[in-house]
Write a protein that binds this DNA or RNA. Structure first.
Length: 928
RNA sequence: GCCCGGGUGGCGGAAUUGGUAGACGCAGCAGACUCAAAAUCUGCCGUUCGCAAGAAUGUAUCGGUUCGAUUCCGAUCCCGGGCACCA
């Protein structure tokens, strides 16, 4: 009886399906555990070997937790709205719903091959009306809410209107417009439209205007991603900034709680740091600088330029000001003589994406001709415009202190602006020094103060003078929440007399209408603007962005078929937070922040009982492709091996990695790969054709994708699962390499032989497992395996976990161990990693039911502990001897044993040791 | 440019809290079994010197802390991810 993985895996996958083995109930006496994968976007390219990496890890952990006695929720679904399906529809005329359904069917088939323990009865798709009904519903709750800064939570907008009626907005400053102040009387006298306009400035989901990358030729808005060198990636058309009406989520109101919440969740430090940096909380001051009226710029009189700075202590070192090209004062303060230059510069900046503005090393800018006055010493400071100052952050204007800020310094150097030194020797004239440790010079009333102390003093003086305020700032901006696209959730919003009105709940879901053309609407509107029935009702023509559905999907899995609520409160109280969330770091600041915000809002409004969605996050690394190249001599049909390519004039051509063994090309397969290569000739080196290699993104286009289906067909799902884990730590990115899979496959065959016997021959039935009592040596192997594998599984070190299995099986093979008392517990350990073969052997051992319901073996350590260990002794880190010391020896006992040793005494030669270092039960060092 | 990771044999990686670097696997070499092949098993396998025992050297580069550094600190180089409309 040989290891027939094809029969075994087919049988068990069917068995699991038929018996509903992974169906999970919403209440159980057992403790709950929720393991979630970031759901995939079902792309047309299907699953490649990178996708299952995280899924296998979570599957192992989910099965492990189930073995440990938990009621485990482990669902899967699809993030089914997205741009690629829409682009595919534009190119091929196939409706996104159709292509998405096909892609999902394909994904499902591929996932099923690998033997995951998902509860598919809970599958969700964000593009299902029954799902997005609740995405729309939650949006309406956000629309109907504001963030009460006094209670620090979201509350109903109705409560706010009541406040306004009683006392105006005195105790609720407007988050959308800090300068907005009104009394109860004024509020009463506002027209309804004005009232709605004001309320819009408070809503958590609100409508406003924002700049987008606009491509006139394509008639669409483009992502930064799709803009390359100022032109569209598709077609190379010009792209400019354009202001469009947009929906936003007021996530900035949650900035502090998003920061504070990080302390209560288990994300990696790197992840927390990324989110912290993204939120970018800083404290400093806003300071007004008066613009000098020098008669050149018309009407500069009384104009003030407000800057935000975290370093008000450096105010005497301000040598120039920089304002963003989009700043509202640009027009007004520009001097006549500079107007042309300024206009040219602004036109130039308009053509550049934000990405380019940040990336470019080149320094650019233009002088406005205007001057500001330093409020403390009256110095005239030139005001410049430069793209390195972004309109969206702070006030869109900075005071530049070249001696203390590197970018300011480079700018000053580039444009020959003299640098004032206020930090003495800390500034060497060559580069800026952002220290806070210097004692200030040339700084008026701040002279002699340590910079870190001067910050507070400067702010106090600014406030006393009434020219500014202490201010906390966030880098994070409100989240743009609309797309001028078709394939997304429609907003349940109707525009009546210019006022956004929510649709009544009874009209949800507002279904995405069928369209015949996916072309954009007029004036930058989405395709929905082309539908007469839609615009006749004045329905919102934007749709929601990709992250709408993914912001709350973890809740829907708990109660996926509920038609009266997004999730029953009792059910979400039971499942509560996601205990373990697995996905890539690329979502560090997008999805993960939005979904944290939605959770907080739903919590504030009383719909759920917890305000952080994910208790623990594990980031899986990205599997990159390892591309292979062949080199064709230009204009011929001749291909030269990589080592010889420099001797010819060649073109580098991506070749399918699946017809290359390591780096050696299978030339027959290559001839069959493409018709055009049928007659290919090869120039070999040492009888082989060697390919060039490069690590790059795994993509169909680069022919470097490896399809899991092929590997599963050849080696089986269990081998594939274990191999993906064996590749390396789940968290680390690495290029895919199929080379080692044979080793893991051999391991499973060896394991099988442990049960079925060496002499396993076709036709021979049954296992050779005996009921004999185990020896201490055999128990030691088992105990070591239990300890190691449990540790490895708990800390997500699945690669060393697989190694531990290999070691155990090798040792048991050497011991010729056939004993049930050893092999059966080992099988239980294996069940999360290689579920099919574990179930099969479990059954053949005569057990009824699933191995997942078996008792998890206990590490009693007896046979491992008994043995004493030899510890090396080092003297002054040099000479070494081995001593045998019991594992549980105390420090004093260790010292006695060490000093009693003849070799040690000889080395010491009568000297008294200064100290005996005994570290971590491993190393003893005697220092003389 | 800014933020976050990473760099260990021919290759993937191990070393869990600063303690014998290279576990486990792949590839390679030698051998056993076989008419032969496959499968399986055994031994060797960082580099240099050495018949060997062994010695020196070695975790991207340079420097530091330490009795001791792959691990901690500083600088540099290279690679990957993110930077707000890809998901």
């Amino acid at each position: 009886m040989e290891y027939d993985f094809r029969r075994i895996e087919k049988y068990w996958q069917q068995q699991w399906k038929d018996s509903g083995a992974y169906k999970v109930s919403n209440d159980a006496a057992k403790p709950k555990y929720y393991v979630l994968d970031m759901f995939p976007y079902p792309s047309g390219a299907g699953l490649h070997v990178g996708h299952p990496l995280g899924y296998i890890a979570s599957d192992i952990y989910a099965r492990y937790k189930r073995l440990k006695g938990y009621n485990v929720l482990h669902p899967m679904g699809y993030d089914a709205f997205g741009l690629p399906a829409e682009q595919y529809a534009i190119d091929h005329g196939i409706h996104p719903a159709v292509s998405t359904a096909q892609n999902i069917a394909n994904f499902r088939q591929q996932l099923d091959n690998i033997g995951f323990c998902y509860d598919w009865s809970r599958e969700i798709r964000t593009s299902d009306p029954s799902y997005y009904k609740w995405t729309q519903w939650i949006f309406l709750q956000l629309f109907d809410s504001f963030y009460n800064r006094q209670t620090a939570k979201a509350e109903r907008i109705g409560g706010l209107t009541e406040q306004f009626e009683q006392e105006g907005n005195a105790s609720h400053p407007c988050p959308g417009d800090a300068t907005l102040r009104f009394s109860a009387d004024e509020w009463e006298n506002y027209e309804e439209a004005r009232k709605q306009e004001v309320l819009m400035q408070y809503r958590l989901a609100y409508c406003g205007y924002g700049e987008v990358n606009w491509c006139e030729a394509l008639g669409t808005v483009l992502a930064n991603d799709e803009v390359v060198n100022g032109v569209s990636e598709r077609g190379g058309y010009p792209v400019v900034k354009k202001k469009l009406r947009q929906w936003y989520l007021r996530i900035t109101e949650y900035a502090d709680r998003l920061l504070e919440g990080l302390e209560r969740i288990e994300f990696s430090d790197a992840m927390k740091e990324m989110q912290t940096n993204w939120i970018g909380k800083s404290s400093g001051a806003e300071i007004d600088f008066a613009i000098v009226d020098d008669g050149e710029g018309a009407g500069d009189e009384g104009k003030k330029l407000r800057v935000y700075t975290t370093r008000p202590d450096t105010i005497f070192g301000v040598d120039f000001m920089v304002i963003a090209p989009e700043h509202e004062l640009v027009e007004a303060i520009t001097a006549e003589g500079q107007r042309t230059a300024v206009e040219e510069y602004i036109a130039y900046v308009k053509s550049r994406s934000e990405r380019e503005r940040m990336t470019e090393k080149k320094i650019s800018g233009v002088f406005t001709g205007a001057y500001a006055l330093n409020p403390f010493n009256g110095n005239k400071i030139p005001v410049w415009i430069s793209e390195y100052v972004l309109a969206g952050y702070g006030t869109g204007a900075i005071m530049a202190v070249p001696c203390g800020d590197e970018r300011d310094h480079k700018f000053a150097r580039h444009f020959g602006i003299p640098v004032t030194n206020i930090i003495g020797a800390y500034y060497n004239g060559g580069e800026a020094n952002p220290t806070k440790d210097a004692v200030l010079e040339n700084s008026g009333f701040l002279d002699g103060l340590l910079m870190r102390d001067a910050i507070d003093e400067a702010i106090n003086r600014v406030e006393e003078k009434g020219i500014g305020v202490r201010k906390v700032n966030y880098k994070m901006r409100d989240a743009a929440f609309s797309r001028q696209r078709y394939w997304g959730e429609p907003f349940p919003i109707q525009w009546i007399d210019g006022v956004a009105k929510p649709l009544p709940e009874s009209e949800l879901p507002l279904q995405l209408p069928h369209v015949d053309s996916y072309k954009p609407g007029p004036d930058g509107e989405g395709p929905l603007a082309n539908i007469p029935e839609w615009t006749a009702r004045r329905l919102e023509t934007n749709t929601m962005p990709g992250y709408a559905g993914s912001s709350w999907y973890f809740l829907r899995y708990m109660d996926p078929h509920n038609d009266t609520a997004f999730c029953d409160r009792d059910v979400s109280d039971y499942w509560n937070q996601v205990d373990l969330y697995i996905g890539g770091t690329e979502h560090a600041v997008g999805h993960l922040l939005y979904s944290r915000m939605w959770t907080k809002s739903l919590y504030d409004l009383g719909y759920i009982g917890f305000d952080e969605p994910y208790k623990k996050l594990v980031n899986q690394g990205m599997i990159q492709g390892s591309s292979r190249f062949v080199y064709r001599v230009r204009g011929t049909n001749q291909f030269v091996s990589a080592g010889l390519k420099d001797k010819f004039d060649t073109d580098e051509i991506h070749v399918d990695v699946n017809i290359v063994d390591g780096v050696e090309l299978n030339t027959d397969a290559f001839r069959k790969w493409r018709d055009e290569y049928r007659e290919a000739e090869f120039v070999f080196e040492e009888g082989k054709y060697i390919c060039g290699t490069l690590t790059e993104k795994m993509s169909k286009r680069l022919y470097n994708t490896v399809n899991p289906d092929d590997l599963v067909a050849k080696y089986g799902a269990d081998t594939f699962r274990m191999y993906e884990m064996f590749l390396g730590p789940v968290e680390v990115s690495k290029p895919w390499d199929t080379k080692g899979i044979e080793g893991v496959h051999r391991f499973l065959k060896k394991l099988w032989r442990l049960f079925a016997g060496e002499e396993s021959l076709p036709g021979r039935q049954g296992l050779v497992v005996t009921a004999e009592l185990p020896t201490p040596a055999e128990l030691k192997v088992l105990h070591k395996a239990i300890k190691k594998i449990e540790d490895d599984t708990e800390r997500f070190s699945f690669n060393t976990g697989v190694s531990s299995f290999m070691i155990a099986v090798n040792e048991l093979t050497d011991l010729k161990c056939r004993k049930r008392a050893i092999l059966e517990p080992l099988l239980v350990l294996l069940a999360p990693y290689a579920p099919h073969v574990a179930e099969e052997l479990w059954r053949q051992l005569g057990n009824a039911g699933s191995i997942l319901d078996a008792a998890y073996p206990v590490f009693d350590g007896q046979h491992v502990k008994e043995s004493a260990k030899a510890y090396p002794v080092a003297i002054n880190g040099k000479t070494r001897a081995e001593l045998t010391i019991a594992l549980d020896a105390t420090q004093q006992q260790v010292e006695e044993i060490v000093l009693a040793d003849a070799a040690v005494q000889k080395w010491l030669d009568g000297k008294t040791p200064k100290k005996i270092i005994y570290v971590k039960n491993k190393m003893i060092n005697v220092v003389v």
